[in-house]
Design a binder for these strands. Structure first.
Lengths: 346, 346
DNA sequence: AGATCCGATTTGAACGATCAAAACATGCTA
DNA sequence: TAGCATGTTTTGATCGTTCAAATCGGATCT
């Protein structure tokens, strides 16, 4: 056996330091109540016995678990989701700064999945939830609010009033930046390839496009599709085959943009030189040589950090950060690559 | 407030059913001990009060947490890691089948990170660990074995004897399949782009290449680099510029393969038609139109499932599945796409 | 009838921490 | 010096579950 003499309890530490249970507990949870001299003695005992408070015992007594629940959704088929990884990592790291951990679970989408949330609550397994992949009319924020459960969502509730706290990325602002970027390069016929109406995220990005066009005096040209690579390719192809085709294609997602890049190449045109293409999400493939897609990049790490801070603030664990307590909207940044490198001729 | 009258305890259920604490507990943990009639009555009470046992209390008493620790590593810069997502999801889902959950934490790589593992153990926060991203001379399996802590690793320990349980993918077999595939298409000059010697995973895949060459009577041609896209591009370029260039490039990873594809295209050659390219990992970008990279795909979900089953077996929670108890080697599959579509001429 | 056994159920103790209140010093004031 | 406020430490109870042993009621055996 190793060095892990897992047996130290409050009581054994107290005995070693010649004090009582509660004094040891106070050294850990309210050091200012303990006389400096005693404190030191206790800390040495803790150190030498390698004592760590038993999480279950603490949880039982305090009725808090110091765990944050996060539901991992099955990755959508064929989708490139670079987000989950980084987001989960950011959550975990920020939580660790305050003695919290992330507990993963799965649940079917929609109202059917609420049972899993309820179960974890009934078991007192988590103190709150982090939601992601929120959709229009997502039942979770409403339900959690009703139940009085602390939570924070990555993504606004696009339908109806806000429920609870959220952090989100300002997609409209990201697209505005994209349009301004190609406009500055000299592009004047800038098309937008979007998602069908009704997806909050897609509508937000479209709104950014329309706002930018209006501000810059461009004529909006919007096409919509389901968002896959093949759909993007078809839509972009149709646009490019127009007698007066757009010279820049701003896409609602990288997936559409990859399709658009393909459509451009298939017509003997050079992305970046002849036609500018911009995506959204800065997926890993965007930086591959031969792709080099300019894309709007979401500050995922920051989203994760803010989400945890807001949630811990709601739990009363940390001082809530300055600013509005119930939401936070972060600016994405445009990562410029070869797909928008050169100004168009004419 | 909502429907979550979070107050049901064993005691309150017992009162509602007109039995004692322990009988309710038995209905949940050892139903065969309870008379059918009583059992039914208790179950109705549980149902109507929506009772769920308090996890902390159970953990405290039984000294098990029903949590599996998993360390999320910071995603390596620029790397396309499609694996983590799916793996974590598979872990979570398999664990849920047995009332377990996954607890995430972070730790610095190497021996420095062992403290975090020790801390979780001292807190009795987890019952065991799932390791991934194991490296040569990884200190974790050795240490955990010394401590007598149940764990399972995704990845063999490449140096020295095995410590503990592991699940891994047979990289050599995957590459053998890749070489056989291009050989069947008619390719006879098949090169391998590998990693520097000393990485267990890379050496394994190289061994597969060498074995296949030997069996098929091909002359091995091995080049090595650090594994990035740009390096792959340079190496592949050098190979293709040879007076008698290879017609097939089998790569140790998709990243190298993307570079190789680029090098092929830059020379006016058509991937799949003129030069076959095979990658490893079947990263999301492989299926993009214009890329369509043939690649060896790892059965990640199966790895996750087996890992959980082995670990729960070690914990005595489930019957260990048939087969060797301490390791499992899974076969990857070759996903054929356009990059190896057509036979070479000549 | 009394002893014995057996399955079903209950009781007391324990897991290891924190809360709330009591006890104990110590110094200051009147 | 008694009385009181203040600061430090200890004691008893409690969180909700499971373990181990005790109890209970009925059937079986001698």
């Amino acid at each position: 056996m190793g060095t892990l003499e897992s047996g130290a309890t409050l009581e054994s530490v107290a005995a070693a330091a010649g004090v009582s249970r509660q004094t040891v507990s106070n050294v850990l949870n309210a050091p200012e109540r303990v006389a400096p001299q005693t404190r030191q003695r206790v800390q040495e005992a803790i150190e030498s016995l390698r004592y760590r408070p038993n999480r279950s015992a603490r949880s039982l007594r305090t009725r808090t678990s110091r765990l944050l629940g996060y539901c991992v959704q099955p990755a959508p088929e064929g989708a490139i989701n670079p987000v989950l990884d980084r987001f989960v990592h950011a959550l975990t790291e920020s939580a660790a700064d305050h003695g919290f951990h992330v507990l993963l679970f799965t649940a079917p989408p929609g109202a059917a999945g609420l049972d899993r949330y309820a179960e974890l609550l009934a078991q007192r397994a988590v103190d709150g939830f982090v939601l992601s992949d929120t959709v229009v009319a997502d039942p979770r924020p409403v339900w959690l609010t009703e139940q009085g459960v602390p939570f924070v969502a990555f993504g606004r509730s696009w339908s109806g009033p806000d429920h609870g706290r959220w952090v989100d990325v300002d997609g409209a602002a990201g697209i505005v930046e994209a349009v301004e970027h190609v406009h500055a390069l000299g592009h004047r016929r800038v098309a937008f390839i979007g998602w069908p109406e009704g997806s909050g995220v897609g509508d937000d990005r479209l709104a950014g496009y329309l706002a930018a066009c209006s501000r810059l005096g461009l004529t909006p040209l919007v096409e919509r599709d389901e968002g896959g690579v093949e759909q993007g390719r078809a839509i972009a192809g149709a646009l490019l085959d127009d007698p007066e085709p757009p010279t820049a294609l701003v896409c609602v997602s990288d997936l559409s943009a990859y399709g658009a890049l393909r459509a451009v190449a298939e017509r003997g045109l050079r992305p970046g030189a002849d036609v500018a293409v911009v995506g959204f999400d800065d997926t890993p493939a965007a930086r591959l040589p031969g792709v080099e897609l300019t894309s709007v990049s979401q500050p995922i790490e920051e989203v994760g950090r803010d989400a945890v801070h807001m949630l811990l603030g709601a739990l009363g664990v940390v001082e809530p950060p300055p600013g509005p307590a119930d939401h936070r909207l972060l600016r994405p940044t445009l990562v410029v690559r070869a797909s928008t490198a050169i100004s168009p001729e004419g």
